[in-house]
């Protein structure tokens, strides 16, 4: 059973984040809140997202799995405006998720959760860590996108940098340690990542002012941020490009 009332902005960010990877997903409801785990079909990117009970205006739930079509939620969100509250209700019996905003109620067919893969989240702990402003990261990505399909992130004890290279052009963004919220790197580490995923991940972040990035050498990227005023948190993993296996 699941019944909740949530701010439009919170649900929109959640849906934006999830839809960077998948079009259907499983909401794992528990008494404490909801969790989403998703992996893109090529197993290049993964997401683990939690929204605590306190991130909702009202919340009651017990252990339930709901398979949802992300596009349908987006449809309803399009009908709402900032500041609106949405009501969500699901009781396993009818197989419908009821979403209402204002005077509109949509009974949404759900997806059989059994058909949605439960990603095995790899246990990756990249050695370098940096906390930086989301805007700066976004800017670096916008720049890189115009010239290449991938971007190299470097963490050095003294700086964080992004580098991408096209046929004739290169782009570098370098931020010294003093201008970063936090930088922890014992030695220089760097990896190259596919820009398409990385970009849509970062663009899906709307409320967090800062993000935390973990990087290793030819190692998956971990990107963490919070939303819903710190009551929700999300963690992306992104596969590295490696020279050879």
């Amino acid at each position: 059973m699941f019944k909740a009332r949530v701010k439009m902005e919170v649900l929109r960010e959640l849906v934006d984040v999830v839809s960077t990877l998948v079009t259907e997903t499983k909401l794992q409801v528990s008494v404490d809140g909801i969790e989403v785990k998703a992996v893109d079909p090529s197993h290049v990117a993964m997401l683990v997202l939690n929204l605590k009970k306190t991130g909702f205006e009202e919340f009651t739930g017990d252990s339930t799995e709901i398979g949802i079509d992300v596009e349908k939620i987006k449809d309803v969100l399009r009908l709402s405006k900032p500041g609106d509250l949405l009501n969500l209700a699901y009781d396993g019996g009818k197989g419908k998720l009821e979403v209402s905003v204002g005077k509109i109620v949509r009974h949404m067919g759900v997806v059989d959760p059994a058909g949605i893969t439960d990603p095995k989240v790899p246990n990756v702990n990249p050695p370098g860590k940096v906390v930086l402003k989301t805007d700066e990261l976004r800017q670096g990505i916008r720049g890189s996108e115009s010239i290449s399909d991938h971007v190299t992130l470097t963490l050095d004890p003294e700086f964080f940098s992004m580098h991408s290279e096209g046929e004739n052009d290169r782009l570098d963004l370098k931020i010294p340690k003093s201008e970063l919220t936090l930088l922890e790197a014992k030695e220089t580490v760097k990896s190259m990542y596919p820009l398409d995923f990385f970009s849509s991940m970062v663009k899906s972040i709307s409320s967090a002012e800062e993000v935390t990035i973990f990087v290793g050498n030819e190692y998956p990227l971990k990107l963490e941020f919070s939303f819903a005023g710190g009551r929700g948190d999300a963690r992306f993993l992104l596969a590295p490009r490696v020279e050879e296996d």
Binding site: V44, P122, V124, T152, V242
Partner: peptide, 15 residues
């Protein structure tokens, strides 16, 4: 800098 290379799927890392 490394050119091309290949994406190493996340399946490569133990869960």
């Amino acid at each position: 800098p490394p050119r091309g290379g290949s994406l190493r799927s996340l399946d490569h890392y133990p869960s």
